[in-house]
């Protein structure tokens, strides 16, 4: 009984629920903004790497490798605490979105690159032979085919971005985790933390099962 009162205290949970839901809104704002920026950036990087001069291709590869190697928490702290020393002062929200988007773009670029490379060379050659521009080749021929391949890993990446929004609490962003720790301090009871965990799970579980379904669907090879 004591345990339930400690971790699942209904009174505390109800009291903290509005605060947690505000946190969820902030989490979603950070997450969705970063997902959109990461997708756009990743697609740009992937296509640029395909068509840019060799020198830029190397730069792009270095970008992708660096941002896939750096721990997100380290990057976030650099953006928030180190950049002000060179005069770049970003709000907690912008810091979180910047760090998440930079990393997400790197992963997304790799996902798109793999998807584009999985399209047979003959598709590029047939497009070129017809006189299609690079842009139309991508928009009409390559990307519609690549999208089937990249949807499962992209969804996976979205899940990771949404999870990683929790790191924003270290730069004082009032996201779901931050609200939960504040509510916990206020009520001197860990129930809000459990509540936050449950909200994360409710948010992400459907996406996780969707990815599993998509992966099964695509590995069966039907369209």
């Amino acid at each position: 009984m004591n345990l339930i009162n400690t971790f699942f205290n209904v009174g505390v949970l109800l009291d903290s629920l509005p605060q947690l839901l505000w946190g969820l809104v902030v989490t979603l704002q950070i997450g969705l903004t970063s997902i959109v920026c990461g997708l756009a950036g990743g697609l740009f990087l992937a296509i640029a790497r395909l068509y840019a001069p060799a020198f830029f291709q190397i730069l792009l590869r270095i970008y992708v490798d660096i941002f896939r190697s750096i721990p997100l928490l380290v990057l976030l702290i650099i953006v928030y605490y180190a950049l002000p020393f060179v005069g770049i002062r970003l709000s907690p929200f912008l810091s979180a979105v910047t760090a998440l988007s930079l990393v997400s773009a790197a992963y997304t670029a790799e996902i798109f690159r793999a998807g584009i490379e999985a399209i047979p060379r003959g598709q590029f050659e047939a497009s070129a032979a017809l006189g299609l521009s690079n842009r139309h080749t991508m928009i009409d021929v390559i990307l519609p085919q690549a999208i089937r391949i990249v949807i499962p890993p992209l969804t996976n990446n979205c899940i990771n971005v949404l999870k990683d929004t929790a790191l924003a609490s270290v730069v004082a962003m009032p996201d779901l985790l931050k609200q939960a720790t504040q509510a916990q301090a206020l009520s001197a009871n860990p129930t809000p933390l459990i509540g936050a965990a449950i909200i994360y799970i409710i948010l992400l579980w459907p996406m996780v099962t969707v990815v599993a379904k998509l992966e099964r669907h695509f590995s069966r090879g039907d369209r």
């Binding site: 598709q123 070129a128 006189g131 299609l132 521009s133 021929v141 519609p144």
Partner: peptide, 20 residues
């Protein structure tokens, strides 16, 4: 180049139709 390619049709051994 695109201009030339528009004037030169090509048929491949492996068809290379757009499957989607």
């Amino acid at each position: 180049l695109a201009k030339v390619r528009a004037e030169v049709g090509m048929v491949f051994q492996s068809f290379n139709l757009f499957p989607h």
